[in-house]
Design a protein around this nucleic acid. Structure first.
Length: 599
DNA sequence: AGATAAAATCTCGCACGTTT
DNA sequence: AAACGTGCGAGATTTTATCT
């Protein structure tokens, strides 16, 4: 027996103290004196203080503030190796995120908890209950045999997991847990991943299976609703900041809104995806609201297709984040990095005769664009095998042609023809008419404050963007990816212009000579060939487009009476003399044009 | 040798079919 | 309809393998 005379309580003293508490009638008037008699090494004040400490600890547990008040991290670490009494781990205790503090407190306090079990008498319980209502119940509940059953992963957690997987790759569970599934530990993430890959591996072998969260392999879809997006922020709020790219992170919901000053260039630079735009909800609508009446009843049903797990086919995480930002949700949560990246500033080379500007060029501010122009391509290259992409001479069907490269792809659930591949375009462009034919509405558009410089050197603003999944190539050799399109209300013979962003993400090689585009999927080369017929049909359409087709200054309020579809060549053309004194010099104009425009 | 990741195993709850 | 058994899915834990 070695009782200390000082204020410190040894394990033995604690045991004696608590055993005595169990024996004593705490309703009696002199229980404190009796307790002190049992502990000769302690004064009555020490015993009383110790008892108060005990009750306060219980109170802290009850209020979920135990860790905060009692232990810093370093102190906690110290506890692990230098304990007054051993604190057995509570195995398999419930890990509900909402009860995380309860569990933590249970672990830290389990030494007390176990000992308190010894004083599990009615009078003790009543006494503690009087001091701390519910305290005894909680203590006993914590000490109950723990269940190994955890808390099921939510869909949002799983999607965050997929995002993290996309960014950090298989195996980096620590970072995935740190930056994405912030409600789970790395071990839990690893466990989840194990189940995920296991299920995927056996997906083909077993025919009839119960639906599982692991069947979700697509990051994007359900995040398209406000409620689902917000549920992610609920997760974020509960724990750590959600880091976007390098430095940008979601901040707690309680923070005041940071409106539209977000530069998502960091996001974009990291990913090669289109950046966020500043949000201007005051922008006029491009197209009137309309219901989705085309295709399936569920416009997002195509999202749920079950594709093989292929990192190449995964929608780019940054696209997803970007979408969130663009939809105006991340604005409240994003904060800029503390230190601005020491990016050298330099002049943006002005391109001539190509479409420049737009989101890919760096966002809504000139500074961002400058930074983008000077930025390095990829900071964290992943070593991977990439087969050579070659075009053989035998593939040339007809060597003498001047056709542009025109292919067709699937956008969302619709086949879209007349897509021009333009390696000189810094954006992917979707013409408004095609956009409308996809049954998309204003809700699918995001305004951005940026300028698009066109072929004629003039510019268009404001702009709208939308993110859509495209499928290029033919099944089963197709490649699916999320693409940010700039939606422009211009006349064109084409429906879509596929520019550098998507071509680069496709790892595409373009050969106008071979009239083909080849790209990589899963380390295999796929190709999509141009349709010479389409290409040639586009040509006369392009050259006979009315003057009105030149980029207009603004995509502002949509005119009521707009010239009908421009995807077909004008049917009625009239020759109009260029000069009154030279009737031989004429130009063909559309008959439907107002007379003022004909002159 | 220690740290870490991956695989294997354990445990629990639920759904579903069968039996009583 | 209730009881029971079985298989599956999921999460946690333990064991094994690999790396530093």
């Amino acid at each position: 027996m070695s009782f200390s005379k000082n204020g410190d309580w040894t394990f033995l003293e604690n045991n004696t103290f608590e055993n005595a508490l169990a024996e004593l009638n705490l309703d009696g008037p002199d229980w404190l004196e009796q307790l002190t008699e049992i502990l000769p090494s302690k004064t009555i004040d020490q015993v009383r203080d110790h008892y108060i400490d005990l009750v306060m600890d219980i109170d802290l547990i009850e209020s979920g503030r135990y860790m905060e008040h009692q232990y810093t991290d370093s102190e906690k670490n110290k506890m692990d190796g230098d304990l007054e009494f051993p604190l057995p781990a509570v195995h398999g205790s419930g890990t509900s995120s909402s009860e995380a503090m309860d569990q933590t407190a249970g672990v830290v306090f389990s030494g007390y908890v176990e000992n308190m079990m010894a004083l599990d008498t009615d009078s003790e319980k009543q006494h503690l209950e009087r001091l701390v209502p519910g305290g005894t119940r909680r203590l006993l509940r914590v000490a109950e045999p723990a269940s190994r059953k955890g808390v099921n992963w939510t869909e949002e957690e799983h999607r965050l997991f997929l995002m993290g997987l996309n960014v950090y790759g298989r195996g980096d569970w620590k970072n995935i847990a740190k930056y994405f599934v912030t409600t789970r530990t790395p071990t839990q993430v690893a466990s989840h991943a194990q189940k995920y890959f296991n299920r995927m591996e056996h997906a083909r072998k077993v025919g009839k299976r119960r639906p599982s969260i692991h069947d979700i392999r697509n990051i994007t879809a359900p995040l398209r609703t406000e409620a689902q997006i917000m549920s992610i922020y609920d997760l974020v709020d509960r724990k750590k900041p959600f880091v976007v790219g390098h430095g940008y992170q979601l901040r707690p919901r309680a923070s005041p809104p940071l409106l539209s000053s977000i530069s998502a260039a960091a996001v974009e630079r990291e990913a090669g995806a289109a950046p966020a735009s500043s949000l201007d909800t005051g922008q006029p609508s491009l197209i009137p609201e309309q219901s989705n009446t085309m295709g399936t009843t569920d416009p997002t049903s195509w999202f749920y297709q079950d594709y093989d797990h292929d990192m190449e086919d995964y929608h780019d995480l940054r696209n997803q984040i970007e979408e969130l930002i663009r939809r105006g949700h991340l604005g409240r949560y994003l904060k800029e990095p503390k230190e601005a990246s020491p990016r050298p500033r330099g002049l943006v080379e002005k391109q001539i005769d190509v479409i420049t500007g737009g989101p890919v060029a760096g966002g809504s501010s000139s500074a961002v664009r400058k930074a983008y122009a000077c930025s390095m391509v990829e900071k964290r290259p992943r070593p991977e095998f990439e087969p050579e992409i070659t075009f053989g001479t035998e593939e040339v069907e007809r060597s003498h042609h001047d056709d542009t490269l025109v292919i067709s792809i699937q956008i969302a659930n619709a086949r879209v023809k007349r897509l021009m591949v333009d390696i000189m375009s810094s954006i992917d462009m979707l013409y408004l008419d095609a956009f409308k034919k996809l049954s998309l509405t204003n809700e699918d558009l995001t305004p951005m404050a940026s300028t698009l410089t066109g072929f004629m050197g003039d510019s268009i603003s404001p702009l709208r963007t939308t993110i859509l999944p495209i499928t290029i190539g033919e099944e089963p050799r197709a490649k699916i990816m999320m693409t940010t399109f700039m939606v422009v209300d211009l006349q064109s013979a084409y429906n879509v212009i596929l520019g550098c962003p998507t071509l680069n993400k496709l790892k595409a090689m373009v050969s106008t000579y071979h009239r083909a585009i080849k790209f990589l999927t899963s380390a295999k080369v796929r190709e999509s060939r141009s349709d010479p017929g389409e290409s040639r049909q586009c040509y006369p359409t392009t050259v006979t487009l009315p003057e009105k087709s030149c980029p207009r200054q603004a995509l502002g309020p949509r005119e009521e009476a707009r010239t009908p579809t421009h995807l077909e060549p004008p049917k009625q053309l009239a020759k109009v003399p260029l000069k009154r004194d030279r009737p031989d010099m004429t130009v063909k104009v559309e008959m439907t044009l107002p007379e003022a425009n004909q002159l």
